[in-house]
């Protein structure tokens, strides 16, 4: 809590210091430019906490996550996020970063899966270990580009399933993901909408998550982004780490292939 207010103060100071010097005609652009300052991004607090959590012996098995294999071998973090989602033979399924971290927390540390799912998204004023761990691992791929080879048949299936779901209409408003995210240069209210069928838009989105959400006062993950979209679409709660969520993330990440990660991001 104290760290958060320090960051807020730094953010305000940076704002004051740079605001006068570089006044833009477009206040929205100006706001985004100020947010883009990495020294003012509270997301790095989550990176630090995630690093501590990664090495700490925790859970019923009193083990750290140091032997967790994120796809490049046990404990290899550099570049791991830029190669996810991928197929894991030990779990016999395609996993994104969060599903894989959950698998390691269950299998290495002995945590209860239902509890991890319930606490993965922090509530206002609370903390989530998952959000911190995602920030830590993802930051180790910052500056690298997404490469999703889709070699395994289950990876190909995840991509195809993700696309099929992207166009599926349902619920009160008949919305599909494509309703908002398959057109160029549109907005919902003042919020710009990316066309996720285009590489440049998909890359702009996917390379900036996990991201510090100023309006949520916390760092949010791609699983949260999926849950949030379905919430707006008036759908029930998306099951954390479900095949459906991983399929959509696989489709989006493949479309974003070649995009350079800059994480943790920061958004309104």
């Amino acid at each position: 809590m104290r760290a958060r207010s320090i960051v807020a103060a730094c953010l305000a100071a940076t704002w004051l210091a740079t605001g006068a010097a570089a006044q833009s005609d477009n206040p929205v652009e100006e706001y985004r430019r100020l947010l883009a300052d990495p020294f003012a991004n509270p997301g790095y607090l989550f990176v630090d906490r995630g690093e501590a959590l990664w090495h700490q012996k925790r859970g019923p098995k009193n083990a750290s996550l140091e032997q967790c294999d994120l796809g490049l071998g046990p404990g290899v973090l550099e570049g791991a996020y830029a190669r996810l989602p991928r197929y894991f033979a030990d779990a016999d399924r395609v996993m994104d970063l969060e599903t894989r971290l959950m698998w390691c927390m269950v299998n290495l540390q002995g945590f209860d899966e239902a509890t991890i799912k319930k606490t993965a998204f922090s509530k206002r004023g609370g903390q989530s270990d998952m959000e911190a761990l995602v920030a830590y691992v993802a930051e180790k791929s910052s500056g690298m580009t997404f490469e999703i080879p889709l070699e395994h048949p289950k990876e190909k299936e995840a991509y195809a399933l993700g696309e099929a779901v992207f166009y599926r209409r349902s619920s009160y408003f008949d919305f599909s993901c494509s309703t908002c995210h398959s057109l160029d240069g549109r907005r919902i209210r003042l919020q710009e909408l990316g066309n996720m069928t285009r590489q440049e838009d998909a890359a702009r989105a996917m390379t900036s998550w996990p991201t510090y959400r100023v309006s949520h006062e916390t760092l949010r993950t791609m699983q949260h982004r999926m849950w949030d979209c379905f919430w707006q679409m008036r759908m029930p709660d998306l099951d954390y780490g479900s095949e459906l969520s991983v399929a959509l993330i696989t489709w989006l990440t493949k479309n974003a292939e070649g995009g350079e990660l800059a994480v943790p991001g920061i958004k309104r």
């Binding site: 190909k156 285009r198 459906l244 399929a247 292939e257």
Partner: peptide
């Protein structure tokens, strides 16, 4: 710019039943 599914070799066809099962499980 556009990523076309057809560019990825060996993509399976997802049946409606398969998709609907994944959606039901996902929620």
């Amino acid at each position: 710019v556009p990523v076309l599914a057809a560019e990825i070799p060996g993509l399976p066809t997802i049946s409606v039943e398969r998709r609907e099962q994944a959606v039901r499980d996902g929620f």
